[in-house]
């Protein structure tokens, strides 16, 4: 007598529970398709447009940030260094090289989900194209670490995963990424302190 209701209940539980869990898992795992990947860096040039896929739109609605338009700029995020290891706040990194052609750029260290880190105001948390010192060949090296270092330094002292966010303002990078090899800075891990 109870077989039918139990089976129906089982079906509904699998449908709603499975559907909700898989939707929430997929949203956490991916920011949508259509990424440009250059080395360790990826960007989503269509994320703010009507052409974004449903995953991206769901992410966008949940996040609620006002994204950069196409003529405004492009945001690149790196979650791992050039060896493929995930970025960690306990480690020190050297970000060196050049950026694609752009009128202005700034580099910031955020937590793994893109929120700013809790850093005392006296420490530098970001650098931009006007404040970054260059080598004689035009390339730069930025040291991201807990200990101060001469030259370009961004302070990083966290116990969790982090990401580097490089924002290019007014750049043709999105349009040309598929046609030519664009140079992005490399991320090298220098060392980690103990847990």
């Amino acid at each position: 007598m109870f077989r039918l209701p139990v089976l129906v209940l089982l079906t509904l539980a699998i449908a709603f529970g499975g559907g909700a869990m898989s939707a929430s898992w997929t949203l956490k795992a991916t920011s949508g398709f259509g990424a440009i990947k250059l080395g360790s860096w990826s960007a989503y040039p269509e994320l703010q447009t009507a052409d974004a896929d449903p995953f991206a739109k769901a992410h966008r609605a949940d996040n609620g940030r006002i994204l950069l338009g196409r003529a405004e700029g492009l945001v690149f995020t790196a979650l791992s260094d050039e060896a493929g290891a995930a970025l960690s706040g306990r480690c020190a990194y050297d970000i060196s090289g050049t950026t694609p052609p752009t009128r202005f750029w700034f580099l910031q260290v955020t937590d793994a989900r893109g929120a700013p880190l809790d850093t005392p105001a006296r420490f530098p948390t970001s650098l931009n194209s006007w404040t970054t010192l260059r080598n004689s060949d035009g390339a730069f090296t930025i040291r991201v670490s807990a200990d101060p270092s001469p030259g370009n330094w961004i302070r990083l002292d966290s116990d969790a995963g982090i990401s580097f966010v490089l924002t290019l303002i007014d750049t043709p990078a999105a349009a040309s990424a598929s046609m030519i090899e664009l140079d992005m800075p490399t991320i090298k891990r220098i060392g980690c302190r103990d847990a």
Binding site: T11, L12, A15, G19
Partner: peptide, 9 residues
């Protein structure tokens, strides 16, 4: 149930 899960997803 699995079909429904896909639908709901």
């Amino acid at each position: 149930g699995l079909l429904g899960a896909a639908f709901i997803h």
